[in-house]
Amino acid sequence: MSHDTTHAERAHGGPKIYTLVLVALLILTFITVGASYVKLGSGMANVILALGIATVKGSLVGLFFMHLRYDKPLNALVLLVSLFMLGLFLLSCYTDFETRDPLEPARLKAPVAAPAPAAAHGAH
């Protein structure tokens, strides 16, 4: 039957590659945890490094475990578009937050509803 071969062909990869990927993932996890104990320059650098490693790990999972490397490009496109939308969402919200005018009245009066979680909790 013709579809047997096409089907089998699609299951690329194989135990060897999968095991290699697993080893790489474990090593990267060690690096992430290790790096969290080291203080890099600014606090931001640690976050970027941790998320960077996470992205490498994620790509390994996606490409090999999820077969994207061998699959029809359409499936990868779905993933990329979802991630793009997520990035767009995050970026837009962040742009708004970071560029807001910090506005205060000339005669500063604490905002009526000051952020006082303790008090707010007391009320519940």
């Binding site: 837009s92 742009t95 708004d96 937050f97 970071e98 560029t99 807001r100 005018d101």
Partner: peptide, 10 residues
């Protein structure tokens, strides 16, 4: 609504 002016412009 209190969005930043840059965001509104974009």
């Amino acid at each position: 609504a209190g969005q930043s002016q840059l965001a509104s412009t974009l």
